[in-house]
Design a protein around this nucleic acid. Structure first.
Length: 439
RNA sequence: GCCCCGAUAGUAUAGUCCGGCCUAGAAUGCUGGCCUGUCGAGCCAGCGACCCGGGUUCAAAUCCCGGUCGGGGCGCCA
């Protein structure tokens, strides 16, 4: 049994005369002397409560005299359709209960339009989230992921949970966070990658995992977090990496469609118009990438990885040529990718390794994995990694593994790019960065 | 990890280059008052700040050094 009968968004002018109870925070008070307007905010929207001297019980005038912004209240009253009220309706109160009130002034204003720096906002994140335009980001993020999950479920993927604490650093490359595991050392995963592969070769060959990953990198950029979440998909019995690219682009499309369909008000609040991207997404391939970059005056040595600037150049190229914000980059040089990627058998300098770029930012990486035991061992040796350290993983490939592949889409990055947020921390409820561990 | 930039009321800022005219300014917020249709309400009055440590100087918000924190770029990557 809830304290409220309606969320504010559910009250329409057609409800004229109906008795309702709303519950929420005092968003704003406009006191004109003889008439006092309380704007009440809940999770969904706001509504105006109008208190006119002489038209409401005397005790309401006294109660509302003492109210401040961000008091938590319930209001029981009659809905009145009124053209001059916001959204054509207001509540004439019969009873107002104060459930709680702030014990001190708020450090940041919820209702005022004064701009607040991101760092300050994150220091007071809980209050920051009370601002409807901030909350809108996370409502959208929720629907985005929901749309993606709907697609995966339709496509017969199972949702699985893989471990966050791992006994051995998985990929090399980026730094891992050590954790104390009783009397042993362990790590937080950088990626659910290897365990996902193990699930697929176990026989559960269409899975996804929504969960966190950690990177112990001192990254000071608007697009890196020490803790981020991914939608990680892995599937078996694929023909080649193109099978996973098709899943990936449909996944993105379905996420965006869901947001477009269900988050009209939130998008409006953020002043965003979404276009559902058309599929298939354009694909660029190594080594053609080198030529494209060179045409834009960027020389990358043949066989080497491209850099951040190149990423932006390629995005510009794709936007001009294909009018797309999304594109895949395929066939990366094997030397810049981890041991588990599958080489192109006929031309083993290149790998069936695929990044997805969205508005110039890497959203995911993935591709086809090497499933043949001897090849995996060969590739581990080629990378100079100790076979022993990966034996826990490689041994399972001795017993029959199907061709498989997958990818991991960064949820915060997708949200950030979708909404053109200037910092990934905006797309994270409680971001973890090298300096920030609280709240 | 490397490079560049910054830190002034609760918030967001002006002032810093060229030290003194700063008793630090306007906004917003908060407190009090006026106001019967506001919708970033309006009007009047008040409250409130130079990141920390050291140095230079007759004099430091302002110049120098160190620290902390923040912003950005690179690397790493989701």
């Amino acid at each position: 049994m809830s304290l409220r009968t309606h969320y504010t968004s559910e009250i329409k002018p057609e409800d004229n005369g109906k008795e309702v109870i709303i519950a929420g925070w005092i968003h704003r008070i406009r006191d004109l002397g003889g008439v006092r307007f309380l704007i009440i905010r809940d999770m969904k929207d706001t509504i105006q409560v109008t208190i006119k001297k002489g038209e409401v019980p005397q005790d309401l005038l006294e109660i509302t005299e003492k109210l401040r912004e961000e008091c938590v209240v319930t209001v029981k009253g009659i809905v009145k359709a009124n053209r001059i009220a916001p959204k054509g309706r207001e509540i004439i109160p019969k009873e107002i209960k104060v459930l709680d009130k702030p014990v001190e002034n708020l450090p940041i204003s919820i209702s005022s339009k004064t701009e607040i720096g991101l760092d300050t906002r994150l220091n007071y994140r809980v209050l920051d989230l009370r601002r409807p335009e901030v909350l809108a980001i996370f409502k959208i993020q929720s629907k985005l992921v929901e749309g993606m999950e709907e697609y995966l479920i339709e496509q017969k993927f199972y949702k699985v949970f893989t471990p966050c604490i791992i006994g051995a650093a998985s990929e090399g490359g980026s730094e891992v966070f050590p954790v104390i595991y009783f009397n042993r050392s362990a790590f937080l995963r950088q990626d659910p990658q290897l365990h996902r592969q193990l699930v697929v070769i176990s026989g559960l060959d269409r899975i996804y995992d929504l969960g966190p990953s950690w990177r112990a990198e001192l990254s000071h950029t608007p697009r890196h977090l020490c803790e981020h979440r991914g939608c990680a998909v892995e599937m078996g019995f694929i023909k080649d990496e193109y099978d996973i690219m098709r899943v990936q682009e449909n996944l993105i499309v379905r996420g965006i469609m869901k947001v477009k369909k269900e988050c009209g008000e939130e998008l409006e609040l953020l002043n965003k118009k979404l276009e559902v991207p058309s599929t298939p997404f354009p694909e660029l391939r190594f080594p053609d990438v080198y030529d494209i970059l060179e045409a834009y005056g960027k020389k990358i040595p043949f066989g080497e990885d491209y850099d951040r600037e190149s990423e932006l150049i390629l995005a510009k190229y794709v936007k001009e040529k294909y009018k797309s914000d999304f594109f895949f980059v395929n066939r990366f040089p094997f030397k810049v990718k981890p041991f588990y990627v599958m080489k192109v058998d006929e031309d083993p300098q290149w790998a069936r390794s695929v990044d997805l770029i969205y508005k110039g930012l890497e959203l995911s990486s993935g591709g086809q994995r090497e499933h043949r035991y001897e090849k995996i061992i060969e590739q581990i040796k080629e990378k100079g990694i100790s076979l022993l350290s990966l034996q826990w993983f490689t041994d399972f490939f001795k017993y029959g593994a199907p061709p498989h592949g997958g990818f991991n889409i960064g949820i915060e990055r997708l949200t950030m790019q979708l909404l053109d947020l200037s910092n990934i921390r905006e797309a994270t409820l409680f971001p973890r960065t090298p300096e920030r561990l609280l709240p």
